[in-house]
Design a protein around this nucleic acid. Structure first.
Lengths: 203, 203
DNA sequence: GTCTATAGAATGATAGAC
DNA sequence: GTCTATCATTCTATAGAC
């Protein structure tokens, strides 16, 4: 039997709007995935609706038919990646006891990050995206859940620094020039190894 | 007496154009510092010359009198921060033996990063800046020197991942939401401590 | 869903006076 | 060094036909 209760999500009182609960049409999905790829390459601010329309092979007006503003496209592109994080948090929080939850979280987050390494800079590096997501309630709830799992309850200074370091390291490594030539499998296993050692680092 | 020779900089054959060797006029300096602050807040792509001019209190034409293009301003703003890294590398490389060089480098880089934490996202997160610096030879030479010190000669996969993790972690922590409320002194000492433990992590 | 056409604002950049 | 005035281009966004 499990050693403890399932980990309770942070801010449980706030009714969370579930990400990805409304499915997109085929045309919308095509727009989102194309936009995300362009965001990763040129940044959000450097990607115009004209570029997105050209990449799809339609006109700007056709894109505006699906999304009223550019901001909507940016958010939809972000959510495409964030639903994966949401699923990872769900299954981690369902684990019995914090050690198991943390371990499950690490495994999934590292897998996701390596798998989507081309999109990481567009999501967490781009200043326009960062500013937009900071005002985005579903995103903030996800981050609260993530940080709660990483730091535990009532974290002190050291625990917060360590959690920040861990999440910054995972994100930062996969887009680092020093490991750009490494294939996904190698990068993933190396990262899984060193992340574990970081978590269990003695004081 | 020192235990070893001074660490040799990477790519010694390439004659490096020294950063910050040409001093700026007062008006130019004012423009650069103003621009850098705006880049940090709105991103490079989200900062127009109009915004820079307004923040200084002059017209666009006055700004264009000092810099021919926006790209020149972006590069100058980047160099303002990079000269500090250059100085840190200089003194670290002058240390006798790799362990001492690495230790000196860590101390200075962490100090610099914490001190300039508001500018970190503009320099290393912004996609426009990253793309521009990637084509910028003096910047690439600096990074070569940095990575050479971090990984040692002929680094294997694990050493590269570890070096990438270290540099990504330092950059990423100082802008992380979890430590945003920490003051500079606390963050610096915590970071110095955990960075050392990372460097001396057993295999 | 996609198109043509266009409005209205902002952008990077330049010419020339003071 | 700073200004006014301007140009060509691009941008987000909309109207209305098919």
């Amino acid at each position: 039997m499990p050693a403890g209760r399932a980990v309770k999500p942070a801010r449980a009182r706030v009714v969370p709007r579930r990400l990805g609960s409304v499915p997109y049409s085929a045309a919308k999905t095509r727009t989102i995935t194309t936009a995300l790829a362009l965001f990763a390459e040129h940044g959000v601010g450097g990607t115009s609706l004209q570029m997105i329309a050209d990449a799809i092979g339609v006109t700007k007006a056709a894109v505006y038919h699906q999304f009223k503003t550019k901001e909507e496209i940016v958010l939809a592109a972000a959510e495409l990646e964030l639903v994966k994080l949401q699923a990872a948090l769900d299954s981690a929080e369902a684990e019995a006891g914090r050690p198991r939850a943390l371990d499950a979280l690490l495994t999934k987050v590292i897998d996701l990050t390596v798998e989507g390494r081309r999109m990481v800079s567009a999501l967490h590096g781009d200043p326009v995206m960062v500013r937009l997501l900071a005002k985005h309630e579903p995103f903030r709830q996800l981050m609260d859940r993530l940080y709660c799992l990483l730091t535990g309850d009532r974290p002190g200074t050291e625990a917060r620094v360590r959690a920040a370091l861990l999440s910054a390291a995972i994100r930062g490594v996969v887009i680092h020039p020093l490991v750009m030539d490494l294939d996904d499998d190698t990068l993933r296993s190396e990262l899984q190894r060193v992340a574990r050692r970081l978590v269990h680092l003695p004081d």
